[in-house]
Design a protein around this nucleic acid. Structure first.
Length: 425
DNA sequence: TCTGGGGTCCTAGGACCC
DNA sequence: TCTGGGGTCCTAGGACCC
């Protein structure tokens, strides 16, 4: 049996746990750059605030309804996520960390106390130990567990737990949802299925898997089997090494200034390298991209340059230099840019990376230097030591490209100086 | 004025190999 | 004159996920 457990309004709840004064008040969390709504408390949903809505478009509604707004605080969410996952590890025989707020658990045999009772025990413990509320869906395949979770939160009489434990329960569950509610089916697949005359989830389960494969590929075929209770999507207990690492941002305002964009590219490359080293990987290939404002009426341009690095590396200096060089290939001064990014590809473990005869740089020395830089930045804050060509964020008064983050809460659980204070009377 | 960021998997086609 | 069969690697694009 599989369970899919995820936190309700995860980011919004994380914020509220440390602000009990906001209980029962509408809370929203914004994406990077304070762009879109990415999380809403129950009360905010009830006000009709949609997911993914640009913040500026619903600002009037937010102000009128006294909604509390937060910028993303990923440091806090990552730490709360670790607490959630560590609790869940006590319950499953096998466990897969699926996303920042979701886990699959797996049991080979029946639960002695019954699935519903077990689910309740999990939800209660998470609530008591972290303050997070979770939804628990249980079923014979990952897709059915996901479906159960959907019903646990959004079904009729939803109470946070939904067990799909029998043939009849599968049928009832499928009858209660739409095609698009099924894991792996989004707009494109829904339209293709409808063209085949399949409008309802129950019809999809009954469809011929080979026929579905012809039209939706092997991905679609697996969904059919999964809905029939035949498990095709394996539990992934070991988190695989990343294949790509990307760092990209939209700018606070558009710019045509090459030096400014190069600063951004070098900074993104540096940040991507920090992620790379944290995972003990090296990159063999690098892409840089720049983009004009997609929402503007002016002429659009998107530049993209991908090339091999001379040898796989995690050295910020080499990668940043290569990024700046790549940027020069695609930069065109007549456009005003809104976004840039750096993508590291062909990643492999540092320990098994192929070396080269032709680059005369001592990798051990490079590693020592980078490790020292990373440690200093960890202790004293990001950017304490950086390349001279990277952006001196503190000295960037025009805020052309660095992140907007006007409503960020304290990093309550990871910084001594930001610990929550309780005033004594 | 303001519209996010970071991933994975699959497929098809081209270039090449023996 | 005839022109198979079995592969790999790479890239781009499309679909999906959170």
């Amino acid at each position: 049996m599989f369970a899919l457990i995820d936190a309700n309004s995860f980011y919004a709840t994380c914020e509220r746990i440390f602000r009990p004064d906001l209980a029962n008040r509408p809370v929203v969390v914004l994406s990077n750059n304070d762009g879109c709504i990415v999380a809403r408390s129950k009360e905010a949903k009830a006000l009709g605030i949609d997911m993914q809505k640009p913040y500026f478009q619903i600002r009037h509604l937010i102000e009128r309804s006294n909604v509390e707004v937060f910028s993303s605080n990923y440091t806090l969410y990552a730490d709360m996520s670790e607490r959630l996952h560590s609790i869940l590890r006590d319950f499953g025989e096998r466990i897969e960390t699926y996303s920042i707020d979701e886990c699959f658990l797996f049991w080979k045999s029946q639960s002695p106390e019954g699935w519903w009772a077990l689910a309740k025990r999990i939800a209660d413990r998470v609530q008591q130990w972290t303050g997070l509320t979770v939804g628990v869906g249980i079923g014979e395949t990952k897709t059915l567990a996901k479906l159960g979770n959907h019903l646990a939160k959004r079904g009729k009489n939803a109470n946070g737990i939904h067990v799909i434990g029998s043939e009849q329960a599968v049928t009832a569950a499928l009858e209660a949802v739409e095609l698009g509610d099924i894991w792996g089916i989004s707009g494109g697949f829904t339209r293709r299925l409808q063209r085949l005359g399949i409008d309802k989830p129950i019809e999809l389960r009954q469809a011929n898997p080979h026929y579905i494969r012809q039209h939706l590929g092997v991905v679609g075929q697996k969904i059919v089997y999964e809905l029939r209770g035949i498990s095709c999507i394996e539990l992934e207990e070991i988190t695989a090494d990343k294949q790509n690492i990307c760092c990209s941002r939209s700018f606070g305002q558009v710019t045509s200034d090459f030096n400014m964009i190069r600063e951004a590219a070098v900074t993104f490359a540096s940040q991507a390298c920090v992620k790379l080293r944290r995972q003990k990987l090296v990159a063999g290939r690098l892409s840089v991209f720049i983009q004009t404002d997609r929402h503007s009426d002016s002429e659009q341009y998107g530049g993209w340059w991908a090339s091999r690095l001379l040898a796989p590396t995690d050295d910020t200096r080499l990668i940043a230099e290569h990024a700046a060089w790549s940027l020069r290939r695609i930069f065109r001064p007549e456009f005003r840019y809104k976004k840039a990014g750096v993508l590291l590809m062909n990643l492999c473990r540092r320990s098994v990376a192929q070396r080269t005869l032709f680059v005369h740089r001592n990798p051990e020395e490079s590693l020592r230097l980078m490790t020292a830089v990373d440690r200093i930045n960890e202790e004293h804050g990001r950017g304490t030591i950086r390349l001279a060509s990277a952006s001196p964020v503190a000295l960037n008064p025009c805020r052309t490209w660095h992140l907007r983050s006007d409503h960020r809460s304290p990093r309550y659980t990871t910084r001594w100086e930001e610990l929550p204070m309780i005033a004594a009377r």
